[in-house]
C-alpha cells in the first residue's frame, strides 16, 4: 500500500481509475464492432479455384454409363421444381428443389460422403447454383451434370448421327448413345416405361451443434 493511498486525500488509486475507464471503453467499444460476417465453409480463394476446375462436371455419357452399370455410389439429385420433377426426370433421381436445398430435410442428401452426388436441372444453370452453395458450405463429392437434361436429351435420347468424315470414335460414341437410349426406353411402347421411383437413401442427419450443459 503506497503512502499516497494511506493518506485520506486520495480515494481511488490511479491504476483503478485507469482500469475502470478501460472497462467502460471496452464495453462502449462493442457498439462499434462491424456487423459479423459468417465466414464458415470454404474460403473465397479456394472456392474460386474449385469453380474453375472442370472435374466438377460429369458428362451425360459418363452418367449414362454409370446408371447402366448400376453404380451403387451414384445419387442423382433433381434441382428443378416439383412439377417439373413429376413430369419427367432421370431414373432413381431425388427431387431437391434449389430453393429448399439448405432445409433440414433436404440438405442431408447432399451433405454426406457415402455417395457421389450428381446435381442436374434443365440446363446446368440451377444445378451449378446448387453446386456453388454446396461447395461454399464445404460439402464433398458433389458434381454437376454438364448441360443438364437438355444435353441428356440431345446426346442419349436422340443422338445425332456423325458425319462421314468424323473419326471412328465418334461412331463408337454414337453406338454407345444409341444403346444407352434403348436402355432408357427409347422406342419402347409407352406402357412399358416405368415411372421413375426415387432411390431410397438413408441419410445420416448431421448432429446439431450441442449446447453446453451444466452450470455452477
Amino acid at each position: 500500500m503506497s503512502k499516497r493511498y494511506k493518506s485520506k486525500k486520495i480515494l481511488v488509486k490511479t491504476e483503478y481509475k485507469f482500469l475502470a475507464i478501460l472497462m467502460i471503453l471496452m464495453a462502449a467499444g462493442l457498439f462499434f464492432l462491424p456487423e459479423k460476417i459468417d465466414n464458415e465453409g470454404t474460403n473465397p480463394e479456394e472456392f474460386v479455384l474449385n469453380t474453375l476446375k472442370s472435374d466438377r462436371y460429369i458428362s451425360t455419357d459418363q452418367l449414362a454409363k454409370r446408371i447402366i452399370d448400376q453404380d451403387p455410389t451414384l445419387l442423382l439429385i433433381d434441382t428443378r421444381s416439383e412439377e417439373e420433377y413429376n413430369a419427367f426426370t432421370l431414373p432413381n433421381a431425388i427431387n431437391v428443389p434449389l430453393e429448399k436445398l439448405l432445409e433440414e430435410d433436404y440438405v442431408s442428401y447432399i451433405d454426406q460422403d457415402s455417395y457421389d452426388v450428381v446435381l442436374f436441372s434443365n440446363d446446368n444453370y440451377h444445378a451449378d447454383q446448387a453446386w456453388k452453395i454446396g461447395n461454399r458450405k464445404g460439402f464433398k463429392s458433389v458434381y454437376v451434370l454438364k448441360g443438364g437434361l437438355n444435353e441428356w436429351f440431345n446426346t442419349i435420347i436422340s443422338p445425332k448421327y456423325p458425319a462421314e468424315n468424323m473419326p471412328e470414335t465418334a461412331f463408337k460414341l454414337y453406338d454407345f448413345r444409341k444403346a444407352a437410349g434403348m436402355y432408357f426406353g427409347v422406342g419402347a411402347p409407352k406402357s412399358d416405361t416405368k415411372k421413375a421411383t426415387p432411390k431410397k437413401v438413408i441419410t445420416v442427419k448431421k448432429k446439431k451443434k450441442r449446447v453446453a450443459e451444466g452450470g455452477c
Partner: peptide, 8 residues
C-alpha cells in the same frame, strides 16, 4: 455498458 457503469 449499463452494467459496467453500475459496476464502476
Amino acid at each position: 455498458l449499463i452494467f459496467t457503469v453500475i459496476a464502476v
